[in-house]
Design a protein around this nucleic acid. Structure first.
Lengths: 235, 235
DNA sequence: CGCGCAATTGAGTTTCGTCAAAATCGGTGG
DNA sequence: CCACCGATTTTGACGAAACTCAATTGCGCG
C-alpha cells in the first residue's frame, strides 16, 4: 500500500505537502522551490498497517523517513533473541538518520498503529543539508531530539522499580494530548519498553486499575489519574 | 588548571594540534587554514583532575568539547536525587553537541580519570559546519555515534540480570585495547552505569573473581577472561 | 455463540535491594 | 617502616521485587 508522489506534486499544490498537517514542523519545512528541483528521486509517501515492518536492522537503505501520523517502535534485538524497544516515534519524528552516516539501518522498525510516512532519498538530504541552513539546523535538532529521548528512556523507563517505570511510561503517553486519555500497547510491548516480562507489566497495570489510578474506557484505552501516577513515581 | 592556546598557535606548528595524537579522528580534522582564520574566539585546551566537574545539567554554555585523553562520565540526575550514568566518553569523543541546538547542557559531566579536553566555540562550529563538508559530516557522525552508544547502553547495560550486564560492561571496557586488561571504576559508578546498587555491583565482581573470570592486577585494574565473560552473557 | 489469542492471576523460585557489620585498601603521620 | 585512620569494598542475613511456569479468565473477532 504505497502511493507515489512526484517532486512537482510534492511541491506544487499537492494537498499532501502544501496542506500537510505537520508541515510547520516537518523536516523539509525550510526548503525553497529551487531546493526541491534539485531532487533527482521522488519524495514518496507510504503507509504501514499495524504490525507491518518498515525495515530491519542491518538492511541496506538510502532513505530517511518522517512520521506523518501513527506510531512506530524502534527495536533492537539482543543476541539471545529477546527484543528491546529503544524508542517510540510519533508524528513529525524522523527515522533512519543513521543512513546519513552509514549505509545500514540500525533498528527494526514496526508500526504499532496504522502509520503514514514520508520517504526522502538520502542523497537529496545530504546535498541540501549543506546548502540549506534551515534543513541543516532541523537535522541537528532531530538528532538531538533522538538523543535526549534515548537518555530519558534510560533514566525514566529503565531505572527503578517496575511500577515507577510503568507510571512514567503512562504519563509519557499523555504528552501532546490535551486530555488524560491515552492508548496503551499490548503487555508484551509494554514489557519490552520497560525491560520487564509481560506478566510484570500486566500486574503493574492491574494494580493501577485496582487503585483507581487508571480507568479502562475500551480495549487498551484508558483515562489516567495524572496526580496519582505522579505520586507513584515520587513514592 | 587551564592553558589557553590561541588560534594561530592551534594551527601553526603548535604541537598540541599539529602533532595531536587524535588529529586524524578529531572534530576539526577537515579544516583548512582559512577555516581556522574565521575563528573569532580561541580554541582552548583544558584539563580536569579525576572527580572534577566540566559542567552541570542546565548550565548555559556556548562550547563543544573533544576528549583528547582520559575518561568522562555523562550523568543524568533523577527527580529523587539518584544519579544515572548514561554514557562514557573516551578519547576523540565529542560532548556538548546539544549546544548546537539549544543553549543549555543536558548532563552533568565528571572526569573519571585525569582528562584533557579541547574546547570549541559553538559559533565557529556552527558557521564552519555549513561551509565545510568534512566537518559537517564529522558532526553527523559524532551525533550518530552518541545515539548508537545510547541504544547499546539500553540493550546491553540496562537489560537482563545483573551479572550479564556487568559482563557486558567489562567487555566493553576492553574495546580499543589490545590486551585483556582494563581499568574498572568504583562500585558506586559501576552500579550507576548498570542501574544496580553498589552492593550488587560488588557481588557481581566478587563472584567473577571467585570464578576466575577476572584477575586483579592492582587496584581496579583487572585481567579479563574474555571467553568466560562472553559465556556469562550467553548464559 | 464459541474460538483463539491475549491478559490476568497464582504459586514457587531466583534475583536484587536494604541494612548492618566486617574486612580491605590507600594514604598519612609518627 | 610501620601503625593507624577514613573510605571503600566485601560479605551476611533478611525482605521485597521480579521472573518463571502454569492455569485461568477475559475479550475481540469471526
Amino acid at each position: 500500500m504505497k502511493s507515489i508522489v512526484s517532486i512537482n506534486q510534492a511541491w506544487n499544490g499537492n494537498a499532501d505537502c502544501l496542506h500537510c498537517s505537520i508541515r510547520s514542523s516537518a523536516l523539509f519545512n525550510g526548503l525553497t522551490e529551487d531546493d526541491f528541483k534539485q531532487f533527482h528521486k521522488p519524495v514518496d509517501q507510504l503507509t504501514l498497517k499495524q504490525g507491518q515492518v518498515l525495515y530491519n536492522m542491518g538492511d541496506v537503505g538510502a532513505y530517511l523517513f518522517t512520521v506523518r501520523s501513527g506510531l512506530l517502535k524502534l527495536v533492537q534485538s539482543l543476541p539471545d533473541g529477546t527484543q528491546r524497544v529503544v524508542r517510540l516515534l510519533y508524528s513529525t519524528d524522523v527515522l533512519g538518520l543513521e543512513i546519513l552516516v552509514g549505509d545500514k539501518y540500525e533498528h527494526d522498525v514496526v508500526a504499532l498503529r496504522d502509520t503514514e510516512l514520508c520517504r526522502y532519498p538520502v542523497e537529496a538530504v545530504h546535498v541540501l543539508s549543506q546548502s540549506n541552513p534551515v534543513l541543516h539546523k532541523d537535522l541537528m535538532a532531530q538528532w538531538q531530539k533522538a538523543l535526549a529521548e534515548a537518555d530519558a528512556w534510560l533514566t525514566h523507563l529503565s531505572t527503578g522499580p517496575a511500577k515507577k517505570r510503568m507510571a512514567n511510561l503512562l504519563l509519557r503517553l499523555l504528552e501532546g494530548e490535551d486530555t488524560a486519555q491515552c492508548e496503551i500497547f499490548n503487555r508484551e510491548d509494554m514489557g519490552s519498553i520497560l525491560s520487564l516480562t509481560t506478566e510484570t507489566a500486566s500486574r503493574a497495570i492491574s494494580e493501577f486499575e485496582r487503585l483507581g489510578l487508571m480507568k479502562k474506557l475500551s480495549h487498551n484505552h484508558y483515562d489516567l489519574d495524572v496526580e496519582g501516577l505522579q505520586s507513584v513515581i515520587a513514592d
